[in-house]
Amino acid sequence: MSALLDIEDLRVTFGGTAAVRGISLTVEKGETHCLVGESGCGKSVTSLAVMGLLAKGGKREAARLSFAGEDIREYNEKQMSRLRGDRMAMIFQEPMTSLNPAYTVGSQMTEVLRRHRGTPRAQAVDRAVELLTRVGITAPGLRLGQFPHQLSGGLRQRVMIAMALMCDPELLIADEPTTALDVTVQAQILRLLAELQKDLGLGILLITHDLGIVARVADRVSVMYAGKVVESAPTAELFRAPRHPYTRGLLSCVPVPGKVKRDEPLGSIPGVVPRIPPGFIGCAFRDRCGFAEAACAADIPRRNVGPAHEALCILPEGARA
């Protein structure tokens, strides 16, 4: 059976610059696939490209881009907008992008159902109340009558999540859904997503830069660096046996509660993410990598390095950071 979302060799350019440089990943029904990586590596652009929502000037190319077995590469705007908010939903990094400040929460939530399903207003309101309750909002009736700016950041984020779920989507793309929230609220929302996934078989592409979240909720992880997926593996495997030097560096940077030693420096990755000029070939991590050699300046093939575990690096097995 084919995956719910199947992306192969996705490329996105803005004018001369390549934001996404050929990434492949799949999301199965009921699976959470996490996409991690540093600011600017192309996580949001990847998700926007899938949703057909790239900003003006963005150009998308892919060897495959299919949703529930259907090739959506040639879908026109009308076909895409029929999918969006219905069978595939998105929670945006910036909550105000998907909430319209001029309309109440209630009218925005019910509009989704009315547009896609023609649901009568009263029923749509019932559904909205049900979902707001589900995401842990007390007094949902009151919230329906409020405007987005009258809500706290945490409430707004929950409203977005409820809105994304109005039509029982099959795929949810969530771009940093809990970054702006307190840890206690974050835990609550991640639990909710896991529950919904179990009940509805939702496939989730979760974008985050928080490795704690990844460890706790992902089934599979893809690590991005400078527009490419440099490593991809089942979660336990990735944390147990990271192969790419960038992944290893990233894991060593995170202070682990209960295991940190004061006065001992954290691991860190020297240098900064480079700018990738057009026509760049080879490993983009090479000017920061302690293992770089001449071969790293040539094309690096994707290799199997373990069970369902792929890395984009020339290092042979057994090499240790």
Binding site: T184, A187, L190, R191, L211, I213, A215, G258
Partner: peptide, 17 residues
């Protein structure tokens, strides 16, 4: 607060605090 911290340890899930 401490229980809500998601340490990078796979398999532990998200706690209910």
């Amino acid at each position: 607060l401490l229980d809500s911290v998601l340490t990078p340890e796979p398999g532990l899930g998200v706690p209910d605090v």
